[in-house]
Design a protein around this nucleic acid. Structure first.
Lengths: 192, 192
DNA sequence: TAATGGTATTTGCGTGTGCATGCAATAGAA
DNA sequence: TTCTATTGCATGCACACGCAAATACCATTA
């Protein structure tokens, strides 16, 4: 180590105690590390970035009908334009197909193709193993309970308590995943 | 809700139990939500993106001498090129100055200017308040203990256990922050 | 000293993303 | 019906980022 003390008095974040600060930084760094590693895993094994995999993963839950573009954008926390291009990428790779929406001819569904279905299955094994190895296996049962409670609480009322944009529908993480197909609420945005 | 069950049997991540899956998704979504919200806070209040603020924050710990570019890149998890341009941005805004390194004339220090120091102080108050309000205040003491333990464990041995790239130096989050000034190890990368 | 190899940083280029905008389609009111 | 407002998605543009190559500078060896 060197002479630099971690957060000298007078640090811009001096409002936070050392422990508080450590929790926040740890959260950020843990996420950064895990996301990078898992992304690298998927790219190496299947040439598939994590973001693209997550799109396929959501679609895999609705094999037949697919998902509306806006709902999918909400699901993967991407802007509509970002999703539009992502689906375009996946479409040129033959993993996803756009299906025009009969009920509303402005709209479109994104659905897995056969090969997309295959890829998400094999890549899913890689990904699940990575999540286990790098994250889940290192948690005690007690810790998993605590984490579940924290995520649910923070995500559930992120909109009421924080006057901010309503980012995700409420509910447990389990319920949130897979529940966005019909709630086509355009409420997520990076708005300032 | 609709007909779509969250993760039907046969889901690509069926290797993971529902609870396991929920923990992982909750982690991702919580991070995404908080990062977006805090970024929006900083942009709205000070026109400063979160990434840029983090650079200033690290520099604020070494007010006089500044930090070497490579060390700073390691600290904020940016590639050398990414950091080079980020510092360039901040330099044109007058928040940071590059100081050529006397001992090694290839190198350069980045250091806060007067106005950069002012901005990081006021922005730090905003940021600390946001972290408190959106995150820390919603954790019980028990939960903060658990989180600290988890982050330390995962970050400490992310390199040994996971044969992956060594992403950050070991130690507590507190120690990690502020300790990277001299360890100019170029070890972080998005490598495939 | 000259040659060689390594290191710190910057720059060229490709890619992914968001915002603003445009187009087509729907919904509702007159 | 027709006019207006809104919605779903795609596209132009700008920007941030990473990788690879270039540049400038050590450091070691002969």
């Amino acid at each position: 180590m060197d002479d630099a003390s971690p957060r000298p008095a007078g640090s811009p974040l001096a409002d936070l105690s050392s422990e508080e600060f450590a929790i926040w930084v740890g959260f950020l760094q843990t996420h950064a590390v895990l996301a990078r590693e898992l992304d690298a895993d998927l790219r190496a094994a299947h040439g598939l970035p994590l973001t693209d995999f997550e799109i396929l993963l959501w679609l895999a839950n609705r094999p037949c009908e697919g998902m509306r573009m806006a709902a999918l954008a909400d699901a993967v926390l991407l802007s509509p334009s970002g999703l539009s291009r992502a689906v375009e990428r996946l479409e040129t790779r033959g993993l996803v197909q756009r299906i025009p929406c009969a009920e509303d001819r402005r709209g479109a569904y994104a659905a897995l193709t056969e090969s997309g279905s295959d890829l998400v299955r094999t890549a899913g094994a890689t990904h699940a193993a990575g999540i286990r190895r790098r994250f889940l296996n290192r948690l005690t049962p007690e810790e998993t309970r605590v984490l579940t409670a924290i995520w649910d609480r923070l995500l559930a009322d992120s909109q009421q308590t924080c006057n901010g944009p309503r980012l995700r529908p409420s509910g447990t993480a389990e319920a949130r995943f897979g529940a966005a197909a019909d709630t086509t609420s355009r409420t997520r945005r990076n708005d300032v």
